[in-house]
Every structure is written in structure tokens, then in C-alpha cells.
Amino acid sequence: MKKTGILRKTATAALMAAAVTMAMAGCGSSAKGSTGVTGSSTADSTGVTGSSTADSTGDAGSSTAGSAATDQTQTASTFRSLDEIKSSGKIVIGVFSDKAPFGYVDDKGNYQGYDVYFANRIGKDLGVKVEFVPVDPASRVEYVATGKADLMLANFTVTDERAQKVDFALPYMKVALGVVSPDTAPVKSVDDLKGKTLIIAKGTTAETYFTKNYPDIRLDKYDQYADAYNALLDGRGDAFSTDNTEVLAWALQNPGYTVGITSLGDEDTIAPAVAKGNKTLLDWVNTEIQTLGTEKFFHADYDATLKSFYGDAADPDSLVVEGGKVE
């Protein structure tokens, strides 16, 4: 959330970036009046956040690979509707590439995990190819909001804050926060964290939760999950907090570390996200999740991807949500 705030502010700075680009492009040839024109269009677009300005369409679609979108559709939105996705034959789905067992890349270079299993099913049912974009926790909202990914399936916890920027579909999983720490100095309650350093990944629910409810706890923030775990292993912090599913799986496989706090904060749900206003895609995903519920798809997904990680440490029914209905 913080990152988006910064981006909003820097939207004005983007004008300068554009000016720089233009100035540089125009370096060889003589400077054109175009910089002035850009300036005025930014002034409008920063006021009306999100909606793209009309005059920029000429340059828009060119880089979106494979999108045969016309200028008109580009003006209307930065996202692609269900029909556009279908006709392009490809859906772009944002997943984690370094967060096993939800989204990771195996040693053959293929995407694997709980989210990926679902993504592949979506591709199959839509009749299109799935193109995976690897994302980091803090940039997930931006990917969807700017249309760089049609759908986000990256262990994305539903929050009110995020719901203002993206549209969430029905949930397919539920989680709370967990805190993992070394056996030698276990953190069993939030009080144990007083005067200690807690490691978190930027842009996660853990960051928001601790910043809001426990501003006294010192946070050590990392951009990437891999770095956050390494920080814990290296002893750069006393504990690491993120979704309980994630820390449970990790602690099981890392002897010497235990999850002292298994459930903290409110129980949250994890759901796919689409760009704000992308109703056609949202409706399709919701129907899909409901249909899949009848065949217990997510239990099958759990068995295929998560079971080997959790073993007996977790009960599938406490994590999986079928048909979008949280009990």
C-alpha cells in the first residue's frame, strides 16, 4: 500500500521522467514542441487517477505483446476484458516464483504450486494459454491495477485497502498470520517480541498488521521472500512473520525453527484479483470457483501441491475454501 502511495505522488514526477526521455530522444534532432504537450496531458491525468488520457493512445498498445486491441478499447481501460483475453489466446497471470509451495519454479524451469495448479485450470477452462508473470509481494496491486497482469493468483490476501485498488473474486483459501522463530529463543506471544526485531516482507499483511497494532516492535523489512528467510537464518532478526500457511510449511522443513504463534490477527481470505472494473473477467472467475467447488477442486489442489509440505501439521479444511464459501 505504501508503495502505491509513493507511486501516486511520483505520478507528477513521471511527467519529468517523460520530459527527460523526450529531451534525450530529441537530443540528436532539434527539440520539438512535444514536451509542452505532454506536460498539459499529465496535469489532467494526475487529477483523474487511473483512467488513461485520450491523447496517449497512439503509443499505448504497441508494447503489449499479442494484444490486437484497437485504440478505442485502449482508451477505455488499461485492463483486458474476457473477450479480449479469449481472442488473444493467452491470459497473463501473476504468480510468485519464489514462494513454495504456492508459487515457485521447479528445477526444470516450470511453474509449480497451489496457485499455479489453479492458474493452469483456469487456462484450460478458458481455452487459452497461460503466461505467468513472476511478481513480488509489494508489486502485486500495481501489476493488476496497470493491466500488466490480467489476473493475480499470488497468495493474495483480501484486505479493504487492496480492495480499493483491485477487484477480488471469491476466496479459494483462508489464512491468519504466523510467527516463526528459532527454538533457542522462541517467540510464543506478541509480548515476547518487545525489544526484539521482527522480519517481514514488504507489502504483506504482516507489515500492515504490525505497523498498525504494534508500532513499538522494530521491523526489519525485505523486498523479497527469499531475502526475508535468509535474514532469519542469518539471525538478522529474532522472528519472521507472514501468513501462517507459509511459516508452518517452512518451519516443518527447517529443523531448529518453530512456529510459536500459529494464528494472529483476523482470519483472512485469499482470492484471485482482477483490475478494478474488469467485470467480465471477475464474473467468469467467480462462476469458475463456484463450479470447481462442486468437484472439490481445491482439495485436489491441496493434495497435489500442499500436502507434502504440511504433512500432519495442518488440516486441509482449515486452509482450503471450496466454492468461495468460508465456513
Partner: peptide, 27 residues
Amino acid sequence: FILYFGVAHAFGWNLSAYASAVAMLVI
């Protein structure tokens, strides 16, 4: 980030990740 996300927000220009990276390095 400005080139990749900011520009998409402000102007609706969707630069690819690769193009944004090259543009950043070139600038």
C-alpha cells in the same frame, strides 16, 4: 517503478518490463 507502473497509471502507456528496464538503464 515510475517507468513501469507510474507511466501506465499516468498516461496509460503500458511499457513492457523489458522496455522499462532498458529505458531506465539508458536514462
